[in-house]
Amino acid sequence: MSEAVRIVARPRRDTLGEGPSWSARDNVVYWVDILGKRLNRLSLSTGAVDEWVTPDTIGWVIEREEAPGFIAGIGRRFTALTLDPLEIRTLAAPEDERVGNRFNDAKADDHGRIWAGSMPFTCDRPTGAFYRLDPDGRAVRVDDGYTIANGPAIPPGGGFLLHTDTAEATIYRYTVGQDGSLSERTPFIAFQADWGNPDGMTFDADGCLWVACWGGSCVMRFTPDGRPDRRIMLPASQITSMTFAGAGLDRMFVTSAADGVDEPAAGALFEVDPGCGGLPPYRYRG
């Protein structure tokens, strides 16, 4: 293993690690094990890892700006979640009729809205959708027809966002109106076969896009116009997402999945040196 790649020590691995997010408020990295139904927390001060078991699949947690705790994608619902003790309360249920679906990935934007994708458990039909959760708690379905909705990414300054259908190996671009309306999605980056498939994503401070490569054993950076720029190899094939963390936002933590593979490092949380700085995550303003 490269000296630039470190496996975070902890007693278990994730079945489907996802949704890492840096919390400056708590000096920790939060991430989830979707299929393992767990929320994880890594303290950057002590290296301690804590976990909470959730009653259903958990796709992500996003910090709240105006209230304690988080907004979380639990099962098919937007929920308010607090820790110690773990308490979960439904805010919106936009997919209750899609019983074979679950939330998969989400990000907040600079208006304090949350953009979240859903997908079928079977990963084989386009029953997933794309949602916007406004600060007033209203959930709006903004697009439909996703098989594996993944990795919303919000660029510096806003104006557009990126979203992925991993099953189609394509990252899409939407123009975002001030009212949160979206243009039709247009292909932005079509993945080559030897890159794997695009999963979670985030922008860095230079406006470049970092993408986790499911099946590609790496994270890749793309220039603002979509050209491949860098690749960091990792000792697991199913790489799912990443976040910049630390006081300088110059540490990158990368999640992975053990589901369906027999690899020593599958499901680990990795720390890598990205060689650049990131952006602080936005919070939900509700």
Score class of each variant (00 low, 15 high):
R12M: 09
R38F: 03
E65N: 05
I58Y: 12
P20N: 03
S43G: 05
G17P: 13
D14N: 15
K37E: 11
R12V: 13
G19N: 04
P11Y: 02
A48Q: 15
V29H: 04
R41H: 06
L42Y: 08
P55D: 14
D56P: 10
E51N: 14
G47I: 06
L44C: 08
W22Q: 10
G36T: 11
I58H: 12
L35Y: 12
G17D: 07
T57Y: 10
G19I: 05
W22L: 07
E65C: 07
G19D: 07
R10N: 15
R38T: 10
Y30M: 11
D14T: 11
P68Q: 06
S43I: 00
E51P: 11
G47Y: 11
L42K: 13
G17A: 05
G17C: 05
S23Q: 01
T54E: 03
S21D: 09
G47R: 06
L39R: 06
D56L: 08
S23M: 00
N27K: 12
T57I: 09
P11W: 04
G59F: 05
P68R: 03
V32I: 07
T54G: 06
D33W: 01
V28I: 05
S21C: 14
R10H: 15
W22R: 08
S21V: 14
E66M: 03
L35N: 02
R41V: 10
I34R: 02
D14G: 07
R12G: 13
N27R: 14
D50Q: 13
V53C: 06
G59A: 07
E51I: 10
P68S: 04
D56A: 14
I62G: 10
V28F: 00
S45W: 04
I34W: 06
R38P: 08
N27E: 13
V29P: 01
T57N: 13
L44N: 08
P20V: 00
I62P: 01
W60E: 04
R25V: 00
I58K: 12
R38Y: 05
E66R: 15
E65K: 13
W52N: 12
L39N: 07
R13Q: 14
G19R: 06
A48D: 15
S23E: 01
R25P: 04
A67F: 00
R64L: 02
N40R: 14
K37L: 04
D50K: 13
R13N: 15
Y30H: 13
W31C: 08
W60P: 01
G36S: 11
R64C: 04
N40C: 08
V29R: 08
D50G: 10
G59E: 01
T46G: 10
K37W: 00
T46R: 08
G19A: 11
V49R: 12
P68M: 00
R12T: 14
N27T: 10
T57L: 09
E18G: 14
D56I: 04
L39D: 09
G59N: 02
V61N: 01
D26P: 05
D50W: 07
P20D: 03
D56N: 11
L16N: 02
E51T: 15
V53D: 07
R38E: 14
I58D: 09
S23C: 03
E66V: 06
D33P: 00
S45F: 05
V32L: 01
G59T: 02
G36E: 12
P68E: 05
R64F: 00
R12H: 12
I62L: 14
G19L: 05
D33S: 07
D14P: 05
A24D: 07
